[in-house]
């Protein structure tokens, strides 16, 4: 289990990285490497070239742009940084909760938010969170930057909307009001989730975003509801079976369960008062 040969290039600027990436369709960006390197160890991934972007400071901001009500997360911000950042704790504490559910400590301290989004594993937490949060991806391409809304970013099973030679630079997350909830079911704590759900409640609007369950990407359901969280597991299971391409009864059941648990959390979370209000 050793990687095959590849060329190694350490990018000094985003422009340089994008140039290299555009010039070689078999090249891959190297961020935290927590998904790419195991795939290379198995020789399942065999990039011709690795473009190491770990030195790019432009990819590392973690700032709250308060006038715009935006949390800006650089693509290279590590999961553990999100989990422990006082800034995140202050403006979007729910994001820290999600971060802590990713893998294990040693994985979180290397794995990056952008890397996870671009890897687009359907069982990953960030794509679903970003959809639920209404985030936007800022992407650098060969010619220009462009913005991609989170709900179209993960376009299929381990596929993204990134075009040839494009790289994710940062994510802009609205500092949303309302209550948040998160639940996932895994065989062991820290494993990839079998299924999970992110719930957001604001006024009478409840949004559930699912992940895992062999979905092609995060699936969302919006429910307009005055009633409390009391829709129950079966309601969400039915909703999941209508919206998602899942016909596995077990998966549907845990999707329903996760949604229900997340909604209960979101309801009790809704009353909390955050600094950004």
């Amino acid at each position: 289990m050793k990687p095959a040969h590849f060329e190694y290039f350490r990018a000094a600027t985003i422009g340089e990285a994008v140039d290299k990436l555009g010039g070689d369709p078999e090249a891959r960006l190297l961020a935290g490497g927590q998904s790419l390197i195991p795939a290379m160890n198995f020789r399942v991934a065999r990039p011709s070239q690795l473009i190491d972007i770990n030195g790019l400071e432009e990819l590392k901001p973690l700032v709250a742009r308060l006038p715009e009500n935006i949390l800006e997360v650089g693509a290279l911000v590590r999961h553990q940084q999100i989990a422990t950042s006082p800034l995140v704790q202050r403006y979007l504490p729910f994001m820290a909760t999600v971060a802590l559910s990713i893998g294990h400590w040693a994985i979180r301290s290397r794995g990056s938010v952008g890397g996870s989004l671009c890897h687009a594993d359907p069982a990953a937490e960030w794509p679903a969170f970003m959809v639920a949060a209404g985030a936007e991806m800022v992407v650098a391409g060969p010619q220009k930057y462009r913005r991609i809304p989170a709900d179209t970013f993960c376009s299929g099973f381990m596929e993204t909307a990134l075009g040839p030679g494009e790289m994710l630079v940062k994510i802009e997350i609205p500092l949303a009001q309302g209550g948040w909830g998160f639940w996932e079911v895994a065989r062991r704590p820290g494993d990839f989730a079998l299924a999970g759900a992110v719930c957001r409640r604001h006024h009478s609007r409840t949004t559930v975003t699912w992940f895992g369950a062999d979905l092609s990407g995060p699936g969302t359901v919006t429910v307009e509801s005055e009633g409390g969280a009391g829709h129950g597991t079966h309601f969400w299971e039915d909703a999941a079976s209508r919206v998602l391409a899942v016909d596995d009864d077990y998966m549907l059941q845990i999707l329903g369960y996760c949604a229900d648990q997340a909604c209960r959390q979101a309801q009790s979370d809704e009353g909390r008062d955050y600094d950004n209000r």
Binding site: R188, P189, F192
Partner: peptide, 11 residues
């Protein structure tokens, strides 16, 4: 070891 699941500390 992602498929053959060994017990971890919390379990």
């Amino acid at each position: 070891l992602m498929d053959y699941l060994l017990p971890s500390a919390p379990l």
